[in-house]
Design a protein around this nucleic acid. Structure first.
Lengths: 304, 304
DNA sequence: GAGTAACATGAAGTTGAACTGAATCAACGT
DNA sequence: ACGTTGATTCAGTTCAACTTCATGTTACTC
């Protein structure tokens, strides 16, 4: 009978590309992984891997086995979820990947709710950019993602990942408060008034950067992006100090006293905030509890 | 992560009832099984078993896990079948359970075909009564059953067991050849003429026994069952020697020179001969090869 | 094109998980 | 009451899986 542990290794190799990466991820030595995969090949009775340069690639038989293994891993996870369900206990550890703004706005309150309601539940959170977070959750590095999605920038749909909308977050123009710099800041009433002013944006590659650029181009100009950082709190600092303008989602203003001026855009764009988890964890009580706490907290916060 | 090997033990315990039986079936000591199940309980984080008399029974959590495990085991088997399929090799061992008549008629020829066509294939055969054979195949003691089914005695339908009809086998009255004993034998033209004569039948419990008794009762009499044996070759011996009459399926006459007289019944009843295998082994090349050989042999033999 | 980094694998040795066997206890049937 | 059957515990053993170290190969760099 094929051993689940070994099949898992093959599947991870498929997902991560190299034995070294698999070993790293699962806290093994590369040698151990290599040896166990050799055992799996012997058990399978067919070569599953062949060398390709200095890494390995799957043979057709390997591909087949990986596909079947994906099913099996999901099944195992379903079994574990079912177990937790009959126990009716919200325990264990849930690993969450969340993007920065969520960590600053929704998560602290949600965590407090969970701490009070389910003291036996352990929640681990890592800040992660949405695209990578979805990928990592798919390969079981995390159990839950809190991700965002800009209009016209639907995130990758990974099979077996189940999404639930959390909230929707209005995007507005943020300009310095009156009297902090260039008088053109004070005269601005819409995006078209910001054509000549310095912008702060996230780095290339982020969906929000692309969306912001498109917004400017639609308004008829190429933004003068003078400052780049992924940290939206830095955006705020640059704007408050009269150095730049930006397009900012509503969530970033929570908690902080708004020391900047917000201008509503005519089409009132929103980004969508959603959670995603593997469907095989469906109805896992601890996971459900986390999602519920996030939803409750998101509902309570008013972004508008 | 739950270990497949341990889940298997739990599942086997569910199927076989006692740890001793599981140990026996899987070639472990009872002690090993007990210990591994204890580990599984620890991993599952909930009691899965409780004592009931001197055996064990499943807790609700145990039931749930067994149900999930059934899925997983089927998935594993599908994976293995898929693997054999990409290899396009008919190798390995197929364990077959067959009832007596099949072993004497269809199987020898089918085996010869397989030996010639797939020398690397190993086929193991055990004689087994249909009901038990289906049960044992379901719990993976066998890969394939060759079973029979009498009209109005449909065999148990086990979930996940896939049936294919092999052939249909006419049932006739068998009486001694002329001049070997009681002249009433010679005068017999139908079942109603055998009311006062001695019968040989299979023991109580066999579907065929029940069917034969019903046939007699329908004809208006209670048979005088003087001889009981499950061995149909013994039936033939008793009839040829002028000691009894019986209802016999056509397959039993293959190979032997018929030294008895066969009388067609008015409604020409047939028993159905079929194969059954776990659906999770669907398209397993070796299993498919065995089924094809059986079908080819059955088609070639003329029972009528 | 030599030097170096990244990757896979093999050999040798170690560790721990899993198994066996003996002993014990409990439940059931005579 | 006694023998049988079944489960479990304990102590000891075995073997599979892991680590470390060494080797070979490929790819990138200067």
């Amino acid at each position: 009978m094929l051993e689940m542990k070994r099949l898992r290794l093959l599947w991870e190799l498929h997902a991560r590309g190299t034995i070294a990466a698999v070993a790293e991820a699962l806290n093994y030595s590369p040698s151990a992984v290599s040896q166990q995969l050799a055992v799996l090949e012997r058990e399978a009775g067919a070569p599953l891997l062949r060398r390709s340069g200095r890494t390995l690639e799957l043979t057709p038989a390997g591909e087949v086995l990986v596909a079947e293994t994906a099913e099996l891993l999901a099944g195992l996870e379903r079994a574990e979820a079912a177990l937790h369900r009959v126990r009716e206990e919200v325990t264990g550890t849930i690993k969450v990947a969340a993007f920065q703004t969520a960590m600053l706005s929704i998560l602290p309150g949600a965590l407090r709710r969970l701490r009070e309601q389910y003291p036996a539940l352990r929640v681990e959170i890592m800040q992660y950019e949405p695209g990578a977070a979805l990928q990592e959750t798919w390969i079981r590095s995390f159990d839950l993602v809190v991700a965002e999605q800009y209009p016209g920038h639907a995130a990758q749909h990974l099979p077996g990942l189940d999404r639930q909308a959390l909230t929707s977050d209005p995007i507005r123009l943020a300009v310095p408060p009156h009297g902090t710099g260039d008088p053109r800041f004070d005269r601005a009433r819409g995006i078209e008034d910001l054509a000549q002013l310095p912008w702060v944006m996230e780095p290339h590659g982020a969906a929000t950067r692309h969306w912001a650029e498109q917004a400017c181009r639609t308004a008829g100009f190429e933004p003068d992006v003078r400052y780049e950082t992924a940290d939206l709190q830095a955006h705020i600092a640059f704007i408050e100090s009269g150095n730049a303008v930006a397009l900012l989602p509503g969530l970033v203003h929570l908690g902080a006293q708004p020391r900047l001026r917000l201008i509503e855009l005519p089409d009132r764009p929103h980004r969508t905030v959603f959670t995603a988890a593997r469907a095989s964890q469906d109805r896992h009580p601890a996971l459900t509890a986390v999602r519920e706490a996030l939803a409750a907290e998101a509902a309570q916060l008013s972004f508008e």
